[in-house]
Amino acid sequence: MSEETPAPMSPPAEESKRWLDQPDSGKKLFWALAAACLGLLAWDLGYHQHGHLDFEEWFGFHAWFGFLAYCFIVGSAVMMRKVLKRPEDYYDAE
């Protein structure tokens, strides 16, 4: 275990305010992201795709696929925790 002893840590006091620590930075990032996504959809409008598969050419196929897949994965995580989560020492009786 010797190599993983935690180093002494200084308390988070009186740090200079970083951009990411500003209260409204998260909001700015969120809207920038939203704008970027709209931009990508707009690009799709004026661009004819040449996918291997027919439905790849539907408007924004990859966009809504990504969005829904992500939500599904996160949603399933909530369900999985309910059913399959156990305390950390579950196997320690071995």
Binding site: L29, F30, L33, A34, A36, C37, L40, L41, W43, D44, Y47, Q49, H50, G51, E56, G60, F61, H62, A63, W64, F65, G66, F67, A69, Y70, C71, V74
Partner: peptide
Amino acid sequence: TGDHILTQMQLLMLAVFAFALL
């Protein structure tokens, strides 16, 4: 190619957006 970049960026950015929204 335009196709690859566009489709991949759409997939990834909209998924990142889903994360930010959630």
